[in-house]
């Protein structure tokens, strides 16, 4: 854990700012969820590796909301089981409602993983959940290459020259999520 500045430096919302955490910690945090959801955005499409990571997480039994146009990546890889297209704004609108039935009709989620989403858009959606999805508390993490203070936990900012390092972090994260 450590102190970090937001990826878009002015994104300092207030007294409650999430922690920077290493992949193993985020992985075990995810493992503690009873109904987790992975929300994936279009930035995932920039490299096949990132799509594969999403699929790996999906294979651990975590349903995937493919937001933006990330659906393409899953279709191209032939992995669409447990993957649902959803607009991220509309998805967050549902997530904030404890009575929402979820993507599978079995009820709302208690944990959302944000991944591959444009920074400021994800940040706003995390802000909604932080402020309004509080009863019951919805836990959120970001596994993007950005520090997201509106998530309860996120990675640190990863500069482009550290791309390989980031890929290793994602691999470690996947390993540490208990299926």
């Amino acid at each position: 854990m450590g102190i970090e500045i937001p990826f878009d430096v002015a994104t300092i919302a207030g007294p409650e700012a999430g922690d920077v955490a290493p992949p193993e910690v985020i992985g075990s945090y995810i493992s503690s969820a009873s109904r987790p959801l992975l929300a994936v955005g279009s930035e995932m499409l920039r490299d096949e590796f990132f799509i594969e990571i999403a699929i790996e997480i999906g294979k651990k039994g975590i349903p995937i909301a493919a937001t933006g146009h990330s659906m393409r990546g899953f279709v191209e890889k032939g992995y669409t089981e447990n993957v649902y297209y959803y607009n991220l704004h509309e998805l967050t609108n549902c997530l904030r409602d404890p009575n929402w039935k979820g993507l599978d009709g079995a009820g709302n989620y208690d944990f959302v993983i944000f991944y591959g989403i444009i920074y400021y858009y994800a940040s706003q959606m995390l802000s909604c959940l932080k402020n309004f999805a509080t009863d019951p508390l919805m836990r959120t993490v970001s596994i993007d290459r950005y520090y997201h203070p509106n998530a309860r936990m996120s990675f640190t900012n990863v500069m482009p020259r550290m791309e390989e390092e980031y890929k290793k972090m994602l691999n470690k994260l996947v390993e540490s999520i208990k299926g």
């Binding site: 919302a13 207030g14 706003q124 802000s127 909604c128 932080k130 402020n131 309004f132 509080t134």
Partner: peptide, 25 residues
């Protein structure tokens, strides 16, 4: 079309009672 809110700032500083921390509604 229920209003959906995603605060950019969790605080309010419009009067001298504040700043107020409004995080978590």
């Amino acid at each position: 079309y229920k209003p959906f809110y995603a605060p950019v700032c969790d605080m309010c500083c419009l009067c001298t009672y504040g700043k107020c921390d409004l995080t978590g509604n």
